[in-house]
Design a protein around this nucleic acid. Structure first.
Lengths: 345, 345
DNA sequence: GTGAAAGCGCTAACAC
DNA sequence: GTGTTAGCGCTTTCAC
């Protein structure tokens, strides 16, 4: 691969000049400009991203920390992140933490500031102290989907009102006449699903309904998790007519479980989730869910990160306010085939 | 972030020595060693991956080119790639080409050799000339799942016998007594599904069955694609009792389509796919499919890439043989709920 | 307008 | 064993 110097030699100029024309730094004679451009083309020169980053005092990538890219939600988000990142010329490194805070720390320590210029954190069960440390060490960190706007994390983040999402899901079920509702709550890495459940509880309370705590169950955030949880739930209380899940994947599992138990969805059992992943509309029956602005959040997260990287002046403000919060648009209900009026009265 | 020099100063030695102890280069006095280690710990020093790569004449990452990480197959593969890559200390950059050869070329030109030290190519609809060029420019390229062992691409690759996969799928259907079989063939980016279909044709031929070409249809490699294709297929020939799809996603769509047309799967229509993605077992009914060694292929691909990076002597051999081929284990049939005996005779 | 020189953080000969 | 020196490929300040 040709270097700047080789291009310079061929064009009869010096590396500095080539650099200047390549970055449109102006103050370059039109004629030299042409010669340089020709040399670049002739040699098929391409800037060495690693060297450039080093010279600029930057790191050449952005890191996206997720628990596992194999979780069907993340790829949709990762795709949006990559698109946004590419617009600012960044490549993105996907880091699977596998929900292990220690693994997460190890990765963070290796790449933060040395390979990645900024870190995007999608629910990856990271230690908050670790995140604060990397932030303090000068590598911007953005939490991609903060769930509790009322409880800021002390780190820059994009907030999504998941409490509202939970409430919308609950209200939908209640409006359909359901009163005995089971809840499947995601395992609480970073306590992340608490606010969703709080929103659900809000809806119940406002409707004057009791929350039967035994009808609430924690489960892994997977199809299988929801599947097993549904069996458990209906074993505890066969009178349940609807299930609220804090995430789509378990909701999908609940649909399967109902079918396997001989309960037809939505007529014998209504099911609602949160997020609206691609799979939700492809399931049978398609899942009623509360859609969350995933792509928008990805764009905002990258924008926030870029701003922190490019305008370190604001770092000063930040050190006062400690964090910035960008709010994404609000969740909204998407009614599909997994919910219906309660027949039992 | 502290640098090598700062650590050196604190330990009262020079940067070279610190480097030596950090990389266990030996020939360092035990006592100095301790002092250095203390300084490293005290300063919380971490090597600058970008600088290190530059000094070593390497690039700090591996690139994984996929058409879109949002396709449910890729994340499973990407996860396996990342695990394998991390073992050799590499981070991986996910590059979504969006099936656009020009976008793919642009990415390749930017990162090959400058940010990524090797390139893994999963079906991304890249221009082969571009791949040969990057390979020739000194950046190793590995094709992750080459479909036609009999038709080597002139590039190092991990081969999976997809022709056999297609044959196994066909044989399964035939053994169940099906004779009028529709085929949904993925859109032919890189001609990638041709061998799968060839395998299916092999099975048909060996069984003395005719292939009705109008019962073969091309469709995008998605659930929706398979859904629409199934309607089209049954409109053309209502007598079809089974469908072979060259990929799981369209097969899943076929299941949905059958349900929406009032045909029960598997009794009115049997459906088989290829790959065995996670979703296959979660669908209703669960998909019968031919499993392909995804994780193994990922491991082999990374291993091959590493070898090419680390032992450039072999590059010489390579220039003779032009490419190397690693074969993954063979595909095998996984019978689930989407296939049954043909009732119509 | 263009070049010379220093430096980003690190590694790798080689000398002592 | 440890230090010195040069250099990876690039950017940037500052002379000229």
């Amino acid at each position: 691969m040709p270097t700047l110097n080789e291009v310079a030699r061929r064009a009869g100029v010096t590396a500095a000049t080539v650099s200047n024309v390549l970055r449109n730094r102006g103050r370059v004679g039109e004629e030299t400009r042409q010669r340089v451009l020709e040399a670049v083309a002739a040699l098929d020169y391409r800037p060495h991203l690693t060297a450039r980053a080093l010279a600029e005092g930057r790191a050449p990538t952005l890191a996206l920390m997720v628990s596992s890219i194999a979780n069907p939600f993340y790829p949709e988000f990762a795709l949006a992140v990559e698109r946004a990142a590419r617009e600012s010329g960044h490549f993105v490194i996907i880091c699977n933490t596998n929900e292990d805070p220690l693994a997460g720390r190890a990765i963070l320590q290796q790449i933060a500031g040395t390979l990645s210029e900024g870190v995007l954190v999608m629910n990856a069960n990271l230690d908050f102290d670790d995140l604060h440390t990397t932030q303090a060490n000068g590598t911007p960190v953005v939490l991609c989907m903060w769930e509790r706007p009322d409880d800021p994390p002390g780190l820059p983040c994009v907030a999504v009102d998941f409490r509202l999402a939970g409430k919308l899901a609950g209200q939908h079920l209640i409006e359909l006449g359901h009163t005995r509702i089971g809840a499947i709550v995601g395992s609480k890495s970073m306590g992340i699903h608490a606010s969703r459940y709080d929103g659900f509880a809000d809806a119940m309370r406002e409707a004057g309904l009791d929350i039967v705590t035994t009808n609430t169950i924690h489960a892994p955030d997977t199809v299988q998790g929801g599947y097993a949880a549904t069996f458990e739930l209906l074993a505890r209380d066969a009178g349940i007519t609807a299930i609220f899940a804090t995430n789509d994947l378990p909701a999908l599992g609940a649909i399967d479980a109902a079918a396997d138990m001989g309960r037809s969805v939505p007529h014998d059992l209504s099911i609602v989730g949160i997020t609206d992943i691609l799979l939700a509309q492809q399931w049978r029956p398609p899942l009623t869910t509360v859609a969350v602005p995933t792509v928008e959040a990805a764009g905002l997260a990258v924008a926030l990160l870029r701003e922190m990287i490019e305008e370190p002046q604001r770092a000063a403000d930040r050190s006062n306010r400690r964090w910035r919060l960008l709010a994404a648009s609000e969740p909204h209900l998407v009614v599909r085939g997994s919910t219906a009026c309660c027949l039992r009265r």
